[in-house]
Amino acid sequence: MKNWWKFLGIGLLLLASIAALRIPLAPALVHVSPDRIAPGTTDITITGYNTAFTSGALVKLVNEEQQVCATSVSVLDASHLTARFEVPAGMKANLTDVSVDDLIYTGALFTEGLGAGITSAVCPETYPAPASFTFPNRSILYESIRNLHFHVPMWFTMIVLMGISVFQSIKVLGNNSLDNDLAAEMAARIGLVFCVLGLITGALWARATWGAFWTNDVKLNGAAVTGLIYVAYLVLRGSVQDAHKRARLAAIYNIFAFMLLVLFLFVVPRLNAIDSLHPGNGGNSGFNDLDMDNSLRSIFYPAVLGWILVGCWMYDLRVRAARLANNLDR
């Protein structure tokens, strides 16, 4: 059973992709209307996402830990309700949070008629909803958080394939084998396929999240430089005729470039720590606990492993086809 890893790759990819598309987002409050309150009787319509509002919903305003309970709540459907408040004058902060049961929309309402603070009402206690397996619901990302399991594995696969390419290049320097050189070239080519896929999917996701297809971000620069380096690698290969000379020149460039690339991806971002839009604190390639919770993680790692195995399979096919072509030419 020497092909077990191919089955493993496809299996992981299948399970992770189904999970990535099917697991619901956590419920959240996404919109309130109107978005400002003044002292007096006010009706506020609250829109939720993936929520299950029931007629017993407990709605309150929270301003600097001082609460205002809703006097009446009318639930329109599972994700819309209207609550009436007697808004007192003299609240402290100019942003008021809205809370429905255990969901909180922070800073939802601009507040007028500020003052030294109000006497907090004691609203009925709300109990946290039973925990369920959901993806976190982040503003501006919403459902597109699922892309984590499709877009990011492209980069992991690319780096692994480039690593294989460099490994084969190191072997070329040791033994001058043309077969290792072939493997190095094919790994770089498959890596470039994943680079292109990562760039295009990233551009689409960036357009929907940050409003532009390309932003000046350390990760995007890293991706662009990786692409340029390996295109240059292929150009170098194309411009040398003699096979042994080509193998050695390409191997030297590959090792040199990969080491500098590693520096660029993992050291330089730490210097320019402030200006990354990506999660993981300024180009830190890892994800810390704040950025990725366990539900995302438990799907993300199988997806990454699945894509890496599929990438290796593509590389395997490409090398075998190229070897066959070489044997036929001979």
């Binding site: 620069n221 430089v225 340029l228 380096i229 240059a232 150009v235 170098l236 411009s239 040398v240 000379k245 020149l249 460039y253 040199f256 470039a257 500098l260 520096l263 660029f264 330089v268 210097l271 320019n272």
Partner: peptide, 23 residues
């Protein structure tokens, strides 16, 4: 060594000096 001087130099060198240049 590749025998294709100036053009190749720019193509090969540019992505490699970028990390240094940005820093």
């Amino acid at each position: 060594r590749a025998g294709n001087g100036i053009g190749l130099m720019a193509i090969l060198g540019f992505p490699l000096v970028l990390p240094l240049l940005l820093t």
